[in-house]
């Protein structure tokens, strides 16, 4: 009988601790949820305005293979959201493409690349290289025209492949 009591005490203590922690987590989540959603939305919107400025974005069905969302921007072009595998996990990026199939801008929304190396993929001078191109791209090491980031060829290749995915998608749709 003593054993049963002891086991019951173990179970109840752990249950109580878990319940209290779960309750607190629910509270914190409730308090922060709206703000986090709002920030995520703002970030995505800012990225869309950056890669293809437009007044109205209409969501269109996205393809598969890493394309997570696609938008028709004012009948003048497309904004394609792509997720590719970088050196440290997924790189989430927005690519703007006009009706002629030319890249108008690239923006990195989130990534897990190494600080000071792959993380430099968010830099303006790297992203600017993509603007104005319409052919399938490659980094210079692979015989292409994009200068890879110093010490971060894997990241550079990932971003390039993301832009290529977006270009292919627009070719299919447009």
């Amino acid at each position: 009988m003593k054993d049963a009591k002891y086991i019951l005490r173990l179970t109840l203590t752990l249950f109580l601790i878990t319940a209290v922690v779960a309750g607190l987590l629910g509270l914190v989540n409730y308090l922060t949820e709206d703000r986090i959603d709002e920030l995520t939305r703002q970030k995505a919107e800012a990225a869309m305005q950056e890669v293809f400025p437009a007044g109205n974005y209409e969501e269109i069905p996205a393809g598969e293979d890493g394309i997570t969302a696609a938008y028709r921007a004012d009948d003048a072009g497309y904004v394609v959201r792509v997720s590719v595998n970088g050196f440290g996990g997924a790189i989430d990026m927005m690519v703007g493409v006009d009706n002629a199939g030319t890249v108008t801008g690239v923006s990195i929304i989130s990534h897990g690349e190494t600080a000071s190396l792959g993380a430099n993929c968010t830099r303006e001078d790297f992203r600017a290289q993509f603007v104005g191109t319409s052919d399938t791209l490659a980094v210079s090491k692979d015989g292409g025209s994009i200068d890879a980031l110093t010490g971060a060829t894997v990241t550079s290749r990932a971003v390039v492949s993301g832009v290529n995915l977006a270009l292919d998608f627009v070719k299919e749709v447009g």
Binding site: Y6, L10, T13, I17, V21, L25, V28, T32
Partner: peptide
């Protein structure tokens, strides 16, 4: 906290705090 379940209890408490800090930082 009984001795036998202390590690489990600690981990739950720690994980709770970490998740809260994570959410607060995100916000």
């Amino acid at each position: 906290i009984p001795d036998k379940i202390r590690i489990a209890a600690y981990i739950v408490i720690i994980a709770g705090f970490v998740t809260m800090v994570d959410l607060l930082l995100k916000a």
